[in-house]
Amino acid sequence: MTVIRTASFVVIAALLTGCVTSTVDEMVFNEPTEGIGDATVVILGRRHASDYETEPDFIDCVGKHIEARDSSIDVIGELEFLNQLYPWFEPRTAPLRPQDIDKLMAQPPVAARMAALKTEYMIWIDGSTVRTNSAGSMTCGIGPGGAGCFGFGTWGNDSDYEATIWDFTDKAEVGRVNTSASGQSYMPAVVVPIPIIAPVQGTACDGLGDQLLEFLSSEY
């Protein structure tokens, strides 16, 4: 059964943070009914595009978010997994479609290491956070009364990520989650610059992590 869920929300952080708008879309084809047991999960970033790469710190953030909210889920670190499966998951050799799993598992070293790691679900994350518009100006100088800055600057950030869930047991794609977030940051300065940062990437990480938890965890 396919389940499609969409959620839109605005995150307004207190004090010295900007405003972030976030949207999450989820499509699940075959959701586990009792969690994943003692199997492991690996989260990898897609890095095949020439104009961007999925940031390693974002992949790490999603994995930590999942483990922090359900300690029974064992998420294998991206770098650890890539080192153990080298060179089969390098950008030029990594499987791009679920149909490539059979060919990959036909390699005895890959099958043996995947079995040793107990990896049942592989989550590919594709996307990035980019800076958009920026405006304003700021001047700084040193005078008889000391140093200081004056001015106002603003800039935007957009995050857009898609997570694709592969089941290595069934050798199939079993779900997708899309998340997007946008926000505006500010830098007013009267003597001292005060950054008011919109946590755009962090909001996208939390949104994606929560939706993946709904798929993986027996507690949700």
Results as ranks from 00 to 15, higher is better:
3 V>E: 13
6 T>N: 15
8 S>K: 14
9 F>W: 11
11 V>Q: 14
12 I>M: 08
12 I>H: 11
12 I>L: 11
13 A>K: 13
14 A>W: 01
18 G>D: 10
18 G>W: 08
19 C>Y: 10
19 C>I: 15
22 S>R: 13
23 T>A: 12
24 V>D: 03
27 M>K: 13
28 V>F: 15
29 F>G: 09
31 E>N: 13
32 P>L: 00
33 T>P: 02
35 G>S: 12
38 D>N: 15
39 A>W: 14
40 T>E: 06
41 V>W: 06
42 V>R: 05
46 R>F: 05
48 H>R: 14
51 D>A: 08
56 P>R: 04
60 D>T: 14
61 C>P: 00
62 V>G: 04
62 V>N: 04
65 H>D: 09
67 E>H: 04
68 A>Y: 02
71 S>I: 11
72 S>T: 15
72 S>P: 09
74 D>P: 00
74 D>F: 11
76 I>R: 15
76 I>K: 14
76 I>Q: 11
78 E>G: 00
78 E>P: 01
79 L>S: 14
83 N>V: 13
84 Q>C: 05
84 Q>W: 06
85 L>H: 03
85 L>D: 03
86 Y>H: 15
87 P>K: 10
87 P>I: 00
87 P>H: 06
89 F>A: 08
90 E>S: 13
91 P>Y: 00
91 P>Q: 02
93 T>W: 12
94 A>D: 11
94 A>W: 10
102 D>Y: 08
103 K>V: 10
103 K>L: 13
105 M>G: 07
105 M>N: 10
107 Q>D: 12
107 Q>I: 14
108 P>H: 06
109 P>S: 12
109 P>D: 10
110 V>P: 09
111 A>P: 01
112 A>N: 11
118 K>A: 08
121 Y>V: 08
121 Y>T: 04
122 M>D: 01
123 I>G: 07
125 I>G: 03
126 D>A: 02
126 D>E: 12
126 D>T: 08
128 S>M: 04
128 S>T: 10
128 S>V: 09
131 R>P: 00
134 S>I: 00
138 M>W: 06
140 C>P: 09
141 G>P: 05
144 P>V: 04
145 G>K: 09
145 G>V: 01
147 A>F: 08
148 G>Y: 09
149 C>W: 02
150 F>M: 12
151 G>T: 11
152 F>I: 09
153 G>T: 13
156 G>S: 13
156 G>I: 01
156 G>A: 05
161 Y>D: 01
162 E>Y: 00
163 A>V: 09
164 T>K: 10
164 T>G: 01
164 T>E: 12
164 T>H: 06
167 D>R: 06
168 F>P: 03
168 F>A: 04
169 T>V: 10
172 A>W: 05
173 E>M: 15
174 V>F: 00
180 S>Y: 04
180 S>A: 14
180 S>Q: 13
181 A>K: 03
182 S>R: 06
184 Q>P: 01
186 Y>V: 05
192 V>Y: 13
194 I>K: 05
194 I>C: 01
195 P>R: 06
200 V>S: 05
200 V>F: 07
202 G>N: 15
203 T>R: 04
203 T>K: 05
206 D>W: 00
207 G>C: 07
207 G>V: 00
208 L>N: 03
208 L>E: 03
208 L>H: 02
212 L>C: 06
213 L>C: 01
214 E>F: 10
216 L>W: 04
216 L>Y: 07
217 S>N: 07
217 S>F: 07
219 E>F: 12
220 Y>Q: 06
